[in-house]
Amino acid sequence: MKPILALEHVGVAYPRGRGLRHRDHFWALEDVSLSLCSGETLGVVGRNGVGKTTLLRVIAGIIDPDRGSIHNAGIRASMLSLQVGFVNQLTGRENAILSGMLLGAPRARIEAVMDEIVAFSELEAFIDEPVGSYSAGMKARLGFSVAMQADPDVMLIDEVLGVGDTHFRKKSAEAIRQRIRSDRTVILVSHNVGMMKDLCDRVVWIEQGRSCMEGEASEVLEAYEASSLS
């Protein structure tokens, strides 16, 4: 199968320090290669601070890599970000439109699915109130419901599985699992090896900014677990 997205030897350097002097760099990503096929769920595993978030930013097109190349077959990848661009003084409805548009959905589509957003977030009585009056849980519910409707070609998920109170946490985690299991294309970043075994088709293992293994989920995850034990 032909990949819809491929990264080859991608590296990203951040400047360290400001000013005219002391302009050195630190490589957040050194050398990462991976490929993604339509409909699959690719896991990215690695310890804290190995550049997983930077990697997702590169894939989402937020930053350009300093070296290596990206081949994109014309797809739009975006992170599952919650409460993007929320403004406290605006109502839930206005924030849903604003946030949805920031996530790339046309305004007409968000308005068309507004009823679903309201129903899923269980905010029927509050949707026309300013979100500044919402509790943290209510905001999280609205943010999640909007993000789920954004529907990019490739969804990038960074550890957010389940938000809000116990009841909604279950419901949102279930919705995400469903989305991942469907024939949508997803890249999932997580520490939770058990969950990744369950959800991912293939996994890339990143160690100190380099992709050191890519393959079948069970195979890579076993190797990863073995290395973390030793």
Binding site: G85, Q89, L98, M101, L102, P106, R107
Partner: peptide, 22 residues
């Protein structure tokens, strides 16, 4: 255009926020 629509919506929203403050 999507971005143009977003710019207009955001500008209007910001004006509304400004009007609701104080």
């Amino acid at each position: 255009n999507h971005w143009l629509e977003l710019i207009l919506y955001k500008a209007r929203a910001d004006l509304k926020v400004e009007a609701s403050q104080g």
